[in-house]
Simulated scan of single mutants.
Amino acid sequence: MFNPDPAAYLPHRYPFLMLDRLLALEPGVSACAERQLTGTSGNFPQVCLIECIAQLGGIIAIQEEEEGGFLASINSAEFGELPCAGDILTISAKIVASFGRLFLMEGEVDCGGRMLVRAKLSLGVGKL
């Protein structure tokens, strides 16, 4: 059953949870989520855009409740425009390949058609 609350899948909580709502989820394949930047979000650093993709990738890759995970590497990242307060970010990610419990992910964050970041990441998933 699909739950749109990212906190149902991740141990992260405010202020470390970078996703507000899941829009779509196909476990083991891909997902899409949203994050709205408020005035209290302040200046949202671009590295946090990478964390948005990593968290969404973790949701895609997990197979068991309370399974741990970690960002193993940022293989490539292409940064575009800067996000601003009030922006609604759309985060998308998909698994490109898996090697046991290591996953190669591709993801992107955009806002109204403006590309903010495109990245390839490696995630490790499993009991730590």
Rank of each mutant, 00 (worst) to 15 (best):
M1A: 10
M1E: 05
F2T: 11
F2E: 15
N3M: 04
P4E: 14
P4V: 15
D5E: 15
D5T: 07
P6V: 11
A7D: 09
Y9S: 09
Y9E: 01
Y9N: 04
L10Y: 07
P11I: 02
P11M: 05
P11K: 07
H12V: 06
H12G: 10
R13Y: 13
Y14D: 08
P15T: 04
F16D: 05
F16H: 09
L17C: 08
M18Y: 02
M18F: 14
M18T: 11
R21G: 12
L22Y: 12
L23H: 09
L23A: 14
A24S: 15
A24L: 15
A24G: 06
E26S: 11
V29L: 12
A31K: 01
A31C: 13
C32T: 14
C32N: 09
E34K: 10
E34V: 11
R35H: 08
Q36L: 14
Q36M: 13
L37Q: 10
L37P: 08
T38H: 12
G39K: 01
G39L: 08
T40Q: 12
T40F: 07
G42W: 05
N43Y: 06
P45R: 13
Q46Y: 06
Q46L: 12
Q46A: 12
V47Y: 11
C48I: 12
C48V: 06
I50L: 15
E51F: 00
C52Y: 03
I53K: 06
I53D: 15
I53P: 04
A54K: 00
Q55T: 03
L56G: 01
L56P: 04
G58F: 09
G58T: 04
I59H: 10
I60H: 00
I60P: 00
I62Q: 10
Q63L: 02
E64G: 04
E64I: 04
E65R: 10
E65G: 03
E66L: 09
G68W: 07
G68M: 13
G69M: 06
F70V: 06
L71K: 11
A72K: 09
S73L: 11
N75H: 03
N75V: 13
S76E: 15
A77P: 02
A77I: 02
A77Y: 13
E78M: 10
E81W: 00
L82D: 07
L82Q: 09
P83L: 00
C84E: 14
A85E: 11
A85G: 03
G86K: 04
L89S: 10
L89H: 08
L89E: 11
T90P: 01
I91A: 03
A93D: 02
A93T: 01
K94E: 09
I95F: 05
V96F: 02
V96R: 07
A97Y: 10
A97L: 11
A97V: 01
G100D: 08
G100N: 07
R101Q: 13
R101L: 05
L102T: 13
L102V: 15
F103I: 03
F103C: 08
L104S: 14
L104Y: 12
M105T: 10
E106F: 14
E106T: 08
G107D: 13
D110G: 12
C111W: 00
G112N: 09
G112W: 08
G112L: 06
G113W: 10
G113I: 04
V117Q: 04
V117W: 00
A119N: 05
K120P: 00
L121T: 05
L121H: 01
L123V: 00
G124R: 13
G124I: 03
V125K: 05
V125L: 12
